[in-house]
Design a binder for these strands. Structure first.
Lengths: 342, 342
DNA sequence: ACGCGTTACTGACGCGCGTTAGTCGACCAC
DNA sequence: GTGGTCGACTAACGCGCGTCAGTAACGCGT
């Protein structure tokens, strides 16, 4: 088995010193290397099939050029999250653009908290993107104290960590405004998750703001709690139907909305004739629900990309805004209509 | 800023040599360290907050303890794949169990092929799991020649690389057998992808085997091609409806099936009264389709886990089966029924 | 001849750890 | 006392590369 070539081999082959090889490989602009030498080195490297050894340059350079994505979601949440893969792709794309790679670290909330600070302390990664944080996450405070480069995907109230998120409040508000503009007054809300999760809180907040702005009184009976998946949406809707009446419902997640629609169907209510439904996320399947779902588009790829870019900026010690909010877009399909003439 | 402690610091603190610290940290069993010393070192490490420096031990040890997941899918495919996140979680779980971490490398088929062999050559990863391979992937041959530890998630015909996959043939066969046992004879098939993808090929093969075993003649008109997403399923179904008639359809993917169901609805055909539909994958939403979809469950988490375990075995130079096939399970819901009395 | 700068490099150290070959002392048999 | 063995360590090398502090060669002006 032929040993892998090292930079020393390239140096010999090109007739220069190892230092020069290093300069050429790293394309350093602050040292002048004549074009001729540069070419000679590059050709020697190509001839030998030389690839710099990652760990070695990490050791010498102090940088791993790796960012880690820590997923704090529960297994069920990961399985059900239809946009997670897309976010990951966005993150990887931003990382690659900056010469970084992405390590993933699924870490259920009940898990060993410690492994996650270890990622940074062991210098396995230069920075962290933490997705799906909850307000009661303890290890976070511990980590931010040390000023490690961290970006939260999803905000955490009362914690001064750089965060990137979609504008949940405005998105939800727009969705409910849409229902109101159709003439609805009795509008229910099913959250996408318990309010322990910031996103759920914010979407509920948008719902409330819209009602308030329209002068519609809040009714606690109209609010039910979802839990990421379709079954929870079904259960929430069953509860709502049992205790009150309404002509429209805003659901904080398309997946939960699908469950809710199922419950409506079982109860003999037609969408949108009897009840209008608006979702949130615009998962790829939403356009193929029956009826096609009106929803709020969450730019998943861009979200991942923004998180990646922000983290890279932090790692490079560039100034970053403490909070980045991506705009959403209301996608009107066939699940919403004016209320039935009553 | 206090510098991070090194093993030398721990050695001083514990009053032993750096070598001893290394032995203790790595829990080596072939060298004898009395319990007393071991404890002293561990306490010193804890006191200083010592974490071994990843890159350094990688350089010295020759192992990175990282496996990479190379995703050869197109962006649309990633966005639409409802089980990818789950597979990733399975992979990460297997990796962690072996003390490894997972790096993800999305690499669209048109991309720079080179970056992916670089992952191994630069010793960034000890092994690769390649998901979504196509029969025409060129960089693969290049890589397997060098005997790097690689595991394919999804088989590639004619290539002798260890592979882990779900039993697509048997799964598809079971689905179509189910339709046949209900009394169907005119059974259409919409593939989940072009046959360039092995999984699509195999599912089609299962469909054919079932027909053949039941003595039903093949009709090329009954086969249409899907392309990962719902719109392609819709288009395929529109084409089928235009050129032939049938009482049931087997679709190689739940997502594609949803599009097909949409087309059936638009054409005024009822599921399952007029046309029975069977999907493949059992995505979390399948139970909430209208009607709830009969489908073939693909054990996504287990698939990722099996891929991870197999790769770790290969890395450790243990013998591994060249091919691992995970069983599927037919989930009968409400989208299939006996044919309408004709 | 000398001083001063510039260009084009290079020598050698250090990053933090794994590991091999070895040392040192204690204990035992004879 | 000697030889031998065993347990408990340690000194020192090497992993492959980044980078600082040089240095040799050359040009140019005086």
């Amino acid at each position: 088995m032929p040993k892998r070539p090292t930079s020393a081999d390239v140096a010999v082959e090109a007739g220069v010193s190892r230092t020069t090889v290093s300069f050429v490989m790293n394309e350093r602009t602050d040292v002048k290397i004549p074009e001729k030498t540069r070419r000679r080195v590059q050709q020697a490297a190509a001839r030998l099939g030389y690839h710099p050894h990652g760990p070695a340059r990490q050791l010498a350079g102090g940088r791993t050029h790796i960012i880690a994505l820590v997923m704090r979601q529960s297994p069920e949440q990961i399985a059900g999250d239809a946009v997670l893969a897309e976010t990951l792709r966005g993150l990887a794309s931003a990382a690659r653009a900056g010469g970084f790679r992405v390590l993933v670290e699924p870490l259920a909330p009940d898990g060993l908290e410690q492994t996650y600070t270890a990622l940074l302390r062991a210098q396995h990664a230069d920075g962290l993107v933490i997705s799906g944080p909850r307000v009661d996450d303890p290890s976070l405070v511990d980590l931010m104290r040390d000023e490690f480069p961290i970006v939260l995907q999803g905000r955490l109230p009362g914690v001064a960590i750089t965060s990137v998120d979609v504008d949940n409040v405005a998105g939800a508000r727009g969705a409910v405004d849409h229902l109101i503009s159709l003439g609805h007054r009795r509008i229910a809300c099913i959250t996408n998750a318990p309010v322990m999760y910031t996103a759920a809180q914010e979407r509920l907040e948008g719902y409330r703001l819209a009602l308030q702005a329209a002068g519609i009184a809040q009714d606690p009976d109209l609010v039910a709690e979802g839990l990421f998946d379709a079954p929870s949406g079904r259960a929430a809707m069953v509860g709502l139907l049992a205790r009150t009446s309404f002509g429209a419902v805003f659901v904080g997640s398309d997946v939960v909305a699908l469950g809710a629609i199922g419950a409506l169907r079982e109860a003999g209510r037609r969408v949108p004739d009897d009840v209008s439904v608006v979702g949130f996320d615009d998962i790829p399947l939403a356009a193929y629900f029956d009826p096609p779902l009106t929803t709020v588009r969450l730019p998943a790829f861009e979200l991942g990309q923004a998180a990646g870019r922000t983290l890279l900026d932090r790692i490079a010690d560039r100034v970053v805004p403490e909070r980045t909010l991506l705009p959403t877009e209301l996608i009107v399909r066939a699940s919403t209509a004016p209320p039935a003439a009553a």
